[in-house]
Design a protein around this nucleic acid. Structure first.
Lengths: 221, 221
DNA sequence: CGTGCATTCTTGTCTAACAATTTGAGGATC
DNA sequence: GATCCTCAAATTGTTAGACAAGAATGCACG
């Protein structure tokens, strides 16, 4: 691992920048499952003080991207089947509420529509990385469009782990390229038609499919 | 405010103890809405180092019990009507999922039943404080009984703010003493009968009532 | 080969200090 | 007298170094 990693100076806080950098490296799979992250190693690597590294680790732990208990080293978690099921159960709970609410107004969020287009392009060109990214953007946009700060925060608590598993298992490669796009389209259509129950069902189906792909990657490969 | 507050030595970590102590003082209303909490003041008051106080404040901020932005002092938030609606929308989302899941198994969680008994006693004896406490315990027990780590964590993210508003508006005093207990009983009955939709409806009704009491306290008083 | 102890690593907490930012008060100006 | 500006004070962000306490590891010994 290269010493002296660089930090983008975008965020105002140094802790923010460090947090973002590590977060990306984890969800990209650059830091693999089971990897241990000590405070001093990160501090020296990024050339920051240990308390700063500590703060970043604590925030990642709060989002489920790291596990750690008192006096023990933080580690990138390995999600087993039970935990992936739990993750998707929770995710479905949040996103169902989101699409139902959106359907009640009949307004298709513009941001989600944009992400949907990006997914279609990525699927056509077989750009898996982009497809994963746009997929996350799509679901995040749906939740954000509800305009509920707390629903959004709960979703953030979930979506990090989703990215983690996606990046590490690369389950999207198992999906027929256009399947995801079609399932998304069904959700958007139901929202546009003002059908909350249908939207919720399409969403649940879509996420159950995604969960199935992840689990089959996990066991059979 | 008294200097040199005492910390219970139960939790292993000093930060944990500090966090718990401040958290209780906030949800009890001992630290009122709008109160500013500076790092140095807490540090001197509790006789700990500033970084320790900082860590506790950050954890409280993550749970919504404090608001703060970069370089500004933390403040106990004042929830307006829109935010209370958002809070209950999010809360209903989580707890509906919880009771539906429990009803699917037909198992009434023992812990919730215990809390229900405690509420009935408190209502009979008009012990409002105990009633609030037992009410929170009841709802927390329902969610915990699902056994989903992530659902529980999302609920924790919500329930702190619920306690905050309950403690500060004391809305429970508006409820006829036995109303809450009856509404809870309806939820438990539906769970026992294995009726997910009915359980969800009873829960939504119950929480909408609670929200209504809070909002009327907020405007009319 | 297994167990127990000591070393070492890592985290928890503190003290002290400086930098960067926000806040508030006072003064100058209109 | 009101408003804006400037500057000082207060507060947070970050660093460095240090020590204590708990966890992990390896080695010696039975």
């Amino acid at each position: 691992m290269r010493t002296e990693a660089r930090l983008e100076l975008g965020p105002s806080s140094l802790t923010d920048a460090l947090y973002e950098s590590i977060r990306k490296r984890i969800v990209n799979g650059e830091i693999p499952q089971g990897e241990k992250l000590t405070e001093v190693r990160l501090a020296t690597e990024y050339n920051v003080a240990r308390p700063t590294a500590k703060a970043a680790l604590e925030r990642l732990t709060a989002l489920g991207l790291l596990r750690r208990t008192a006096h023990k080293t933080a580690v990138v978690p390995v999600l087993d089947e039970a935990e992936i099921r739990d993750l998707f159960f929770s995710r479905i709970t949040i996103e169902k509420a989101a699409v139902s609410t959106l359907a009640a107004t009949g307004q298709v969020p513009a941001e989600a529509a944009r992400a949907q287009v990006a997914i279609e392009y990525a699927a056509r060109d077989r750009l898996f990385e982009n497809q994963v990214e746009a997929d996350i953007a799509f679901h995040t946009a749906l939740v954000a469009a509800v305009g509920s700060r707390r629903l959004t925060r709960m979703h953030e608590l979930i979506i990090g782990e989703v990215q983690l598993t996606m990046g590490q298992y690369q389950a999207h490669r198992k999906a027929a390229p256009t399947t995801v796009a079609e399932e998304h389209a069904a959700i958007l259509t139901s929202i546009e038609e003002g059908a909350p129950d249908a939207a919720a069902e399409h969403l649940a189906y879509h996420l159950e499919q995604a969960q199935g792909r992840l689990l089959s990657t996990l066991s059979g490969d």
